[in-house]
Design a protein around this nucleic acid. Sequence first.
DNA 1: TTGGAAATCATACGGATGTTTTAATTGAGG
DNA 2: CCTCAATTAAAACATCCGTATGATTTCCAA
Lengths: 208, 208
Amino acid sequence: MSRASERTREALIEAATLVFAEKGYEGGSIRDITRKAGANQAAVTYHFGGKEGLYREVLRTAFKALKESNVLDPDNLDSLQATEALRLFVRQMLLPLLKRSVLARYIKILNWEILQRTDMFQDVAITENASLLSSAERLARRFMGERASEEDVAVATLWLLHQGFIFVRDYEYLSRPPHNLKVDEAFVERLADFLTRLLASGLTGVRP
Amino acid sequence: MSRASERTREALIEAATLVFAEKGYEGGSIRDITRKAGANQAAVTYHFGGKEGLYREVLRTAFKALKESNVLDPDNLDSLQATEALRLFVRQMLLPLLKRSVLARYIKILNWEILQRTDMFQDVAITENASLLSSAERLARRFMGERASEEDVAVATLWLLHQGFIFVRDYEYLSRPPHNLKVDEAFVERLADFLTRLLASGLTGVRP
DNA sequence: TTGGAAATCATACGGATGTTTTAATTGAGG
DNA sequence: CCTCAATTAAAACATCCGTATGATTTCCAA
């Protein structure tokens, strides 16, 4: 594989990350991606076997990056005080609100997967051992205590996973009338705080 | 308008309700709908002026039915004790988990609108005076008290709206390994209970 | 019974999508 | 320098979509 070939390969992945983050898997088109990457349509089939293969590669990259970012690493979260870990988790999920981070795009893709799960996601999530889920589950367990039933933990985990995504998806709704919220760093900080207290109180409060 | 004509019109609306509930507005195709309704493709344009018109009619029907069922009626919720109102709200939003009810399909469509808001939804929501949002906002306010800031209320309202939808969307995820939850009436009842306590505790707990 | 509007029908249209084909170009090893 | 496989390129292909068209049938009032 030559240098130039490697370059188009990476350009495709980068462009695809952008497009898939913005429009989701189904909504993102090959034509759009290849135009952004300055590559030919056929290059996708050639390098990745098709749209699915390209997306799979994007997912792989995303999981790897999130894992290496350490923020969502379950062991890392375990070492923190429960509420602090929860706050970190929440803040990470709110990152796309501030568009700067590279990770934001990956989390946006994960959010799309919450909307409409693809087959590829299941595969990659298993092979790459997505720590997101296990982080959420461990967090839920810590707040709910040992005596919580498996059903309750499953429900709470699923619940926890969605809490950040809500605001990422609807941040435009918040920033328009009638709410007119200014979505800046200060807001995200306040929101993370708000959510952390809300979630912590919600998770611990459910015990009879 | 003849009797037979009325029948195809209603068959189209019914089929469209089914399809849109399952695949959303964009994902639901005219060909699929007309096949299910036993009607011709052109019938959609003839009776409703196009896909948008058909969807608008489905939304109108949905809002009317939900209103009559008291789920979206804020005044009705106001007349109940706060936690009871919250429980009712939550239970109705979980309806799609039990496939029996007709309302279940309508709520599924509302859930799609949470994911990807259509222009039609805005229009119909206003003209039909559908107050899902205002129901949620009033609920949030009751739990958070008078001293909560507008920002907090806006955030909490948006948050509340999503709580039921999470589980409807990931129904399949819960019922498959590793969780294997049996999603029956008893489960929905437990889930509604769980969520109600969780939300109530979360919403009240945020006050400093 | 019949004329004309209402309703249905099969089918075509224009545009989008992902994929395939076939030819040209590139670039490294002999 | 030449060769040949790897890579890129442009265009065609097959399939979906929502809509439009024009012919045909159905229906009801005159």
